[in-house]
């Protein structure tokens, strides 16, 4: 059963495609509460390969000001786990690319981890990214539940992560590894220096079982191209959130086109 569900998982299928992947993060329920599904649909329509749906949290420790503010706004708009699940009820009727929910652990813990996972499977969610759920706790308490519902859990590594720990994380992962580009919270920065490219190269040479996708600090065509020289794909978050803050939810096409085509 374990292998069956993973074979079917859209994330694994997508990772097998012979192309560099663009993944976009956005905050659910932002700028307006009902923008969630239309943003997902527009991202797919414009050629995005994978989507991280941000479930907002009151105290997002790993996020910079852009995503903090969008989270605060989304919560004010009334976003909750319950509301998000309602919004996503029919999403698989129109959307085929992998969908990942990214959020902090406490809201999932309150919903009930198993109930949350079960709901994700029912709606066609393929994976979860939970920055404050440590690998060991996942491994000890939750891995069986995630696997039961065919969900891929994605772990982060940073420039400070030791080789030994990277190998351990690789052994527990079954989708991709989220490579945080530098020691920082989320938020766009301009370009990558030697320190980062050395790190990208070091990881690329480790010959890991799971492909890597780079995130944090990717904001445009240049940084996307640079990052994907070393990795299977790259994730844009804050830059996209900033864009919809400024131009609204129906401006997705302009952003994605610029990233993909320069």
């Amino acid at each position: 059963m374990k292998n069956y569900s993973f074979k079917m998982n859209r994330i694994n299928q997508k990772l097998q495609e012979d192309k560099k992947l663009l993944s976009i993060y956005f905050t659910a329920g932002y700028p307006n509460i009902d923008d969630t599904v239309s943003i997902i649909q527009d991202l797919e329509k414009n050629g995005v390969d994978m989507i991280e749906i941000g479930l907002p949290f009151s105290d997002p420790l790993a996020d910079g000001p852009t995503i903090q503010d969008s989270s605060t706004a989304a919560l004010k708009n009334g976003m909750t786990s319950e509301v998000l699940f309602k919004q996503l009820k029919d999403v698989r009727k129109t959307v085929n690319i992998p969908l990942i929910i990214m959020g902090y652990f406490n809201p999932m813990f309150q919903y009930g981890v198993e109930a949350f996972c079960e709901k994700c499977q029912e709606l066609g969610i393929d994976g979860l990214i939970i920055p404050d759920l440590p690998v060991d706790v996942y491994h000890e308490h939750y891995q069986d539940i995630f696997e039961k519902y065919g969900l891929i859990n994605v772990f982060l590594i940073t420039p400070q992560t030791s080789d030994e720990r990277i190998r351990y994380i690789d052994s527990i992962s079954n989708g991709f590894i989220y490579m945080v580009s530098s020691a920082s919270t989320t938020g766009a920065q301009s370009g990558f220096g030697n320190v980062q490219t050395d790190y990208f190269e070091r990881i690329a040479q480790m010959d890991l079982k799971n492909p890597q996708v780079i995130g944090f600090g990717i904001s445009n065509n240049e940084t996307f191209t640079q990052a994907t020289q070393y990795a299977k794909g790259a994730i844009i978050g804050s830059a996209f959130v900033k864009h919809v803050t400024k131009y609204g939810a129906n401006s997705v096409d302009a952003f994605v086109n610029k990233v993909l085509n320069g």
């Binding site: 420790l61 790993a62 652990f105 920055p131 404050d132 759920l133 440590p134 690998v135 706790v137 772990f155 982060l156 590594i157 940073t158 400070q160 992560t161 030791s162 720990r165 945080v180 020691a183 920082s184 919270t185």
Partner: peptide
């Protein structure tokens, strides 16, 4: 208790 921290803080 425990340590529910993002990987960035692990080291």
């Amino acid at each position: 208790g425990g340590a529910f921290i993002p990987e960035m803080l692990y080291p």
